[in-house]
């Protein structure tokens, strides 16, 4: 029973006899219904509920169970997970390594989360690192980076990057960047700047040395968001002083760099980020210019600027898309 579609295509001479035969064989096989997505989602939900439940359970009953027992339990879960992972992992390679089975990734995730909990617990209850909070986040970070690279797990790489940010005293996911933090201090701005540059450098190194090349995305994603947001924040923080120019120049250099990389990588996502963030920067400069004019005409000019620049960017985006596709 072969589809009419292929018969027609064959009759028109568009499909060879050989390909038709291949398709015929495929059609004879029963169509499988994949529940892969459902299973993955349930696994994720299960791990999340279990860790959340255990976390609160311990939190509520800390007085009756005793710290040693709790620590032991967490350590056992953690060790169990890692033992399984070390035993079953495929050999290390500098390229992408796929996980040996579907639940491997989740067991690793569970192990990492229990590990972070374990270290946090140790520090809180027994002050293992004393008041040296830096060490308390530095060591988990190193371990997480090692695990992410060794077992090739993108989710854990993201957690490790977040831990790097935490170690530097800031947070990294775009949501928290926008919600939790105020940029009203110079030190925070420079810390973020350092973090962003570190991440973008990390992405560049990953690509250049072809070491776990697929990790590039995570570094680049967080790096670009952090750097652009902090450069814009810095510009507004130092709005009235001359340093503001430096931040604008920073945006210019960053845009040029990321633009080239995005064209080379053919990455539409990063290209879009460059365009949108640069547009915000340019528009803030234009608004600043017009506001100084203090004239009713300036309002009209501003409206025309947004309409014109918007239309211009639409064409730019469409053309860049064509360019990337044909390149």
């Amino acid at each position: 029973m072969i589809n009419n579609l292929y018969k027609n295509l064959h009759a028109e001479g568009l499909i060879s006899e050989e390909s038709l035969e291949k398709i015929r064989q495929k059609e004879e096989k029963p169509l499988l219904f994949s529940v892969h997505w459902e299973i993955k989602t349930l696994l994720y939900v299960g791990v999340m509920l279990l860790t959340a439940g255990l976390g609160t359970l311990i939190y509520e009953n800390i007085d009756s169970i005793g710290h040693q027992f709790v620590l032991l339990l967490i350590a056992l879960i953690c060790l169990g997970c890692f033992a399984y992972c070390f035993k079953n992992a495929l050999p290390f390679s500098t390229q992408k390594v796929s996980s040996p089975n579907a639940y491997f990734d989740y067991i690793l995730l569970l192990g990492c989360i229990t590990f972070i909990t374990f270290v946090g617990y140790l520090q809180f209850e027994y002050k293992v690192f004393g008041i040296n909070y830096g060490m308390a986040t530095f060591i988990p970070m190193l371990v997480l980076f090692f695990i992410a690279y060794y077992f090739d797990h993108l989710g854990i790489l993201s957690i490790a990057i977040a831990n790097l940010a935490l170690w530097m005293g800031v947070s990294v996911t775009p949501k928290q960047l926008l919600i939790d933090n105020d940029y009203n201090s110079g030190t925070i701005i420079y810390t973020y700047l350092l973090l962003g540059v570190l991440l973008i450098t990390g992405a560049w190194l990953t690509r250049t040395f072809n070491f776990k090349k697929h990790f590039n995305f995570s570094y680049q994603h967080y790096g670009i968001h952090v750097t652009y947001i902090v450069l814009l924040a810095g510009y507004f923080h130092y709005y009235d002083s001359a340093i503001a120019i430096a931040f604008m120049l920073g945006i210019l250099f960053l845009s040029a760099f990321i633009y080239n990389e995005a064209i080379k990588d053919k990455s539409f996502y990063f290209l879009l980020l460059v365009i949108l963030y640069s547009y915000i920067a340019v528009s803030s400069l234009v608004i600043r210019l017009f506001i100084q004019a203090e004239d009713a005409v300036a309002v009209y000019l501003l409206l025309f600027y947004f309409i014109g620049s918007g239309i211009g960017l639409v064409f730019l985006l469409i053309n860049l898309n064509k360019k990337l596709k044909t390149a």
């Binding site: 994720y44 999340m48 972070i116 909070y133 986040t137 993201s158």
Partner: peptide
């Protein structure tokens, strides 16, 4: 998937600011 994991699992414990907090971590 990695971005979702980062959003849900990275409310990592901050260094406890005062002793009034019973336990810093576990907020997943």
């Amino acid at each position: 998937e990695s971005l979702i994991i980062a959003e849900t699992f990275t409310h990592t414990p901050q260094p406890p600011a005062n002793e009034g907090v019973k336990f810093g971590g576990g907020d997943f």
